[in-house]
Amino acid sequence: MRRFNKFLVLPVLLLVISGCTNLDEELKGDIVKDISIPGISVGGDTGGSDVLGAAYAGLRNTGTANHGGYYSVQTITSDEQCIAAKGGDWFDGGILIELHRHTYTPGHAFINGTWGAHYGAINTCNELLARTDLDANQIAQVRAPACLFLLSYAGYVW
C-alpha cells in the first residue's frame, strides 16, 4: 500500500505541473477586429451609409458636436458664442476667458482635444481607404472632409 501511494502521487503531480502553460488572452467583452456590415437602403436620405458610418461619426465629432472640441474652439474665440462667468460658475480655471481673449497656449485642453479628435477621424478614414472594397464614390467621401477640417483648424500640417 505504501509503495502504491508513492507511485500514485508522483505522476499526478507531474500531470498537474505540465497541465497548463498556455497564456493566450482571448478577450470576450472587447472588440479587437473591424466589423463592417453594409446597411439596407430604404430610400431617402439616411446620412452616412454602410461602412462609412464611423468616418461620418468622426466628422460629427470634429465638426459641430460636443463642448470642448472644434465647435467650442471655433465659436468661443470668435463672437459667435460668449460664455459669461457668473461669479464662480463657468469660470473653469480661466480656460474659457482665454479662448475669448486669444491668450490660450498649446496646454489648453480644448486645443489639444481638437487636435486629437481630428487625427482620430483621419485615422478612421485611412483605415477605410486601406480596404479594397470601397467604390470611387465612397473613397471620395472619406477623403475630403476630415482633412479639410484639420487644415482649417491647424493650417498646413503635412
Binding site: I31, S36, S49
Partner: peptide
C-alpha cells in the same frame, strides 16, 4: 490589444473605429 468601438448606422450598417 487594439480596442475598437462600434458605430451603428441608421440604415442598419455597422462599422468600427
Amino acid at each position: 490589444k487594439p480596442i475598437r468601438e462600434i458605430e451603428n448606422g441608421p440604415d442598419g450598417s455597422v462599422s468600427t473605429r
